[in-house]
Amino acid sequence: MESFKPYTARYAVLPVENIDTDQIIPARFLKTTSKVGLGQNLFSDWRYNDDGTDNPSFTINKPEYQGVEVLVAGNNFGCGSSREHAPWALQGFGFKAVLSTYFADIFRNNSLKNGLLPIIISEETYQKLVASDAEAAGEVEISVDLASQTLTLPDGEKVHFPIEPFAKYCVINGVDQLGFLVSADDDLTTYESAHAPRVNTAGLL
């Protein structure tokens, strides 16, 4: 995972609530054994026509949104299936952050593991971003600084966003959490010596 650097980026808005992970990447694209190349399947059923050509009316297909790196979406983004292919597809497309008034728990966890920032914003901030986009589609920018947990909106207003200290540490430093867990081995060995396994799957077939 790359370490986080503050950035300023253009954004696109999907003003739809409850965008589930089946919309972010439909299940038929989950037959892969890799994380690579999923960006082309992002929002596939909304983004492409039945003949495979681009749907010109879908937001991120429009010329003014080419190269956007931040997605602003309606509440409860990422609900449904636990597929980590959703953040992989968003990152594969080029998104660095998703902004929503709230996220589904598993999607949020999965995103943070990959350095895709799920940034929780207030309804007021959400409405502001929607309004700015309506005025100058694809041209307005926001800045994201994780160290200070600050978003700078198109009008210059700075808003604070929440994030757990550990997830923040990991994303800023590009540290993955598996390394931390492996380093907890002493505690784990102590726990296991005091707790016999609850089940034994050995021999099942």
């Binding site: 636990s82 597929r83 980590e84 598993i106 966890n109 999965n110 593991k113 990959n114 993955d176 959490q177 598996l178 867990l181 492996v182 907890a184 081995d185 784990l188």
Partner: peptide, 12 residues
């Protein structure tokens, strides 16, 4: 859990 966490549980 997601796939990263599947890896966490497999390993630890």
């Amino acid at each position: 859990i997601g796939t990263s966490e599947v890896g966490h549980v497999l390993a630890t």
